[in-house]
């Protein structure tokens, strides 16, 4: 483990040791060790091809690891898959509802295959539809719902049975800002009401801030694992933002600092800031600068430092990826 302990010293509910998976020549997972505690909100962050989806598929028992073990609530995912699945709720990246059935029918189907007794099933369906604010849509065919509503149905569905761990693979991908916010609000509410471990992958870095711990993976390895604050303190880079008054100052600063980034707004951002840099800039350009500030490190910069890549670059192409190749079961991303 790279850093960060299981929160509050409770027994871990997810234990992963030496997990490895190889597709031909590509090493998708390279000896992952991880443990996730009860009631924790755990974020998995990584660029495309980092191994996130492979890791998720192994945890969901859809894929067998080559080496190592993964346990969900004490059950080994490759040796006791049925017992492990009973502890799992999953929201997949691609929609997995039956669009020809109604919302209620989809949820009831889930309850039946997860052996939820009739009374509890009926109660849970009502409760979960209330949670995701879809009570009036109960008898609507799923294909008549919007993408955001479908995703909410899937979240409700993963919670019909008593799962100890709920895995959400990119639950907010492709949704508008309002829907994304709502989904996080539901998850927050849920966490206060029910003892539940949430494992979330996302590439919206701002969403990760509310999680207990963040795990950054790349090339099948864990690069960093800690609370968002600790990650910022350790890997984040402070930067100086300068607003020049005129063009001459702007070119002057750019010439003096080859690593400076000129933004479209006219601002200049200088990574790796110290107070010395500010003093030097003020001394050199003085009144040519209308505003200068030191910005707190963002998780974006943490990600950039660790992986050398911008996470935002991938956003546009994201939704079509990570569909497992049907023939080999190999995730494409």
């Amino acid at each position: 483990m790279v850093g960060g302990d299981v929160s509050e010293g409770t027994a871990p509910v997810v234990e992963i040791a030496g997990l490895g998976k190889r597709y031909g020549r590509t090493l998708a997972l390279d000896g992952i060790d991880l443990s996730i505690g009860r009631n924790e909100v755990f974020a998995l962050l990584g660029p495309n091809g980092a191994g996130k989806t492979t890791l998720i598929h192994i945890l969901c028992t859809l894929l067998k690891p080559d080496t190592g073990t993964a346990r969900i609530a004490g059950f080994d995912v490759s040796r006791q898959p049925l017992k492990a699945r009973r502890q799992l709720g999953v929201v997949f990246q691609e929609p997995s509802l039956d669009s020809r059935l109604t919302v209620q029918e989809n949820l009831n189907f889930h309850g039946l295959v997860h052996r939820v007794p009739f009374r509890l099933r009926r109660r849970r369906i009502t409760e979960m539809l209330e949670l995701v604010e879809l009570t009036e849509w109960r008898h609507a065919l799923v294909r008549t719902l919007s993408a955001g509503m479908k995703r909410r149905v899937e979240i409700a569905r993963a919670l019909i049975h008593d799962a100890a761990v709920v895995i959400l693979d990119e639950p907010t991908v492709g949704l508008d800002a309002q829907s994304r916010e709502r989904i996080w609000a539901y998850l927050g509410k849920l966490r206060r009401e029910r003892e539940l471990t949430l494992i979330v992958t996302t590439h919206y870095i701002d969403e990760v801030d509310s999680c207990d711990r963040v795990c950054i993976v790349d090339h099948g390895k864990i690069l960093a694992l800690d609370t968002p604050e600790a990650l910022r303190a350790r890997y984040g880079v402070e930067q100086v933002r300068i607003t020049p008054r005129d063009l001459a100052t702007r070119t002057g600063i750019m010439e003096q600092n080859p690593n400076a980034i000129a933004e479209a707004s006219g601002d200049i951002v200088l990574p790796g800031a110290t107070h010395g840099v500010v003093d030097r800039l003020l001394g050199g350009f003085g009144t040519g600068i209308s505003n200068i500030s030191i910005e707190r490190p963002s998780l974006e910069s943490v990600f950039l430092t660790l992986t050398g890549r911008e996470i935002r670059d991938q956003a546009a192409e994201r939704p079509t990826l990570a569909r497992p190749n049907a023939r080999t079961g190999e995730p494409v991303n």
Binding site: R85, R86, L88, F92, P95, S96, R157
Partner: peptide, 14 residues
């Protein structure tokens, strides 16, 4: 398989 519903069934304890 194509539209993902199979995964919902495969991750159930059946």
């Amino acid at each position: 398989r194509e539209f993902g519903f199979l995964k919902e069934v495969l991750t159930s304890p059946m």
